[in-house]
Write a protein that binds this DNA or RNA. Structure first.
Length: 304
DNA sequence: GACATTTGACCTAG
DNA sequence: CTAGGTCAAATGTC
């Protein structure tokens, strides 16, 4: 039996009571829920950075399977966030409509200029800005299963850190339009966190098992081990408290995968305690101010 | 030499 | 006019 409470759990900014109707209830502020899912994405990304390097040293194909599982989990989270955002935002016009309005405005003021190259650049920039994007906060911005090439870096207003711009390595070879930006957060915490924003979908075909290992950014062993384990129980409780049945169902599936992978660390995937300790010791290099690429190199060097 | 990164210039939206 | 996104030549690395 559904609990049709008249108050909404995620309503910190609203003074009006929430409707008892499930659909209309989505108009409430779900930002706390979204924040939790974003945090979960971050944790999954951390976990992936720990597990995949170990599996990629074993040429038995498990790395590819686990990478796909991680991808599915993150994709699931993105869909949940997207669904919540679209309902929360409510009546805002679709992206195409916004683009059309700006296109019309630009047409009026543009005049004659615009050779073919400029037109192409213009079209690219316009579409780049208004295509769907997903963002996540993670200590490991480079380990996302894809190969990226940096093409720019900019100082950003009101931020102490530069923003880096990456495009898919296969942009020219396979016309893959995926790009991402990475920016370090101005946080005082002991774990360095980055905001990663993904634009566009990968249309390239890459072989995960052949993909090079990605950079593991500086993070402390404590931040990885304690955060992951402590948050799991916490996370279960939060999912139980979610008032939207569909959302809870989606997230429960996700949590199931999460638990499965964690459990697999020590059993089915063949990762032993000794390995985990050595891996965490390696991550401690972050505190020694080693460059992230050096850390990556250590992990790759086959110390397992 | 091939490929990746850096960095200043350029372009556009707001 | 400014901030942010992209380009492409210069530079670095293997």
């Amino acid at each position: 039996m559904k609990n049709k409470s008249s108050s909404c759990r995620y309503l910190p900014h609203s003074s009006a009571p929430c409707s008892t109707d499930d659909t209309r209830c989505f108009r409430c502020d779900h930002r706390p829920a979204i924040d939790e899912i974003v945090r979960e994405q971050s944790l999954v990304t951390q976990l992936r950075a720990v597990v995949l390097p170990a599996l990629e040293t074993k040429a038995d194909g498990r790395a590819e399977i686990v990478a796909q599982l991680f991808g599915s989990i993150l994709d699931c989270s993105r869909k949940v966030i997207s669904a919540l955002n679209s309902r929360y935002v409510g009546e805002s016009p679709p992206d195409d409509e916004i683009v059309d309005k700006r296109r019309a405005k630009r047409k009026n003021s543009e005049g004659k200029k615009g050779d073919e190259v400029k037109a192409k650049q213009h079209e690219h920039k316009r579409s780049r800005r208004y295509t769907n994007s997903t963002s996540q906060v993670t200590p490991v911005p480079h380990y996302d299963g894809h190969q990226w090439r940096k093409y720019g870096q900019k100082n950003i207003n009101n931020s102490n850190h530069q923003r880096s711009y990456y495009r898919c390595t296969y942009k020219h070879e396979q016309n893959c339009k995926a790009t991402k930006t990475v920016q370090q957060l101005d946080s005082a915490g002991e774990t360095i966190m980055y905001t990663v924003v993904y634009y566009g979908q990968h249309t390239c075909k890459t072989n995960m098992s052949n993909a090079p290992l990605h950079v593991v950014e500086t993070s402390t062993p404590q931040s990885i081990s304690t955060t992951c384990s402590d948050d799991l129980g916490d996370y279960s409780q939060k999912i139980e408290n979610m008032h939207t049945p569909e959302l809870a169902e989606v997230c429960s599936d996700e949590l199931g995968s999460y638990h499965a992978i964690i459990g697999a660390e020590h059993s089915a995937l063949g990762l032993e305690d000794e390995y985990m300790h050595r891996l965490l010791d390696t991550f401690a290099c972050g505190a020694l101010d080693l460059d992230s690429w050096e850390i990556d190199a250590i992990v790759r060097s086959g110390f397992f």
